[in-house]
Amino acid sequence: MANYYLFSTGGDWDTTSLYRNGDQFPASKLYIELQTPRNDDGRPLKNGLQQGAEMTAYATSLDEGQEVAIFPGKIDLEFPTHKVSIENATPQFAIEMTRVWIDEQDVSHEVSEILINIDSERNEVEAYIVLFKPRLFGADEVATYALL
């Protein structure tokens, strides 16, 4: 059964919450990392997730300290300035089937890197998404969306 997570934060710990399938999920850490391949120069490749990727995604429960897989499933991440959604419902977790939205816009073919690290124990927060936007005319763009 696919999970559905809802992470929301207003920019501080008091307004930060995580829900799993409609129920609050006490967690000490939420970690999502995605990295698509790069060429020899370290430059992202075109077509985003279509080139494959490496991904780590889990939430550490506050009670048992156990890492719980987020996928297969979907997670909505509501930040003060952006809303990000990541979904992969394939049981085998085929990375090419992962879909990423930023503010309701599908960026699956542009995403290059994702890092969501919300660690309450270490009081560390880090969240950004990097998109690679190839241009036919002019320079390609590597756009970093700072979520926090």
């Binding site: 300035t81 241009r135 005319f137 002019g138 320079a139 763009e141 590597v142 756009a143 970093t144 700072a146």
Partner: peptide
């Protein structure tokens, strides 16, 4: 396009959005 990319300084630029 190739020529314009070369003129554009290597063909990549970095931007940050908040």
């Amino acid at each position: 396009a190739k020529i314009l990319r070369l003129i554009g300084g290597g063909g990549i630029k970095y931007t940050t959005y908040r």
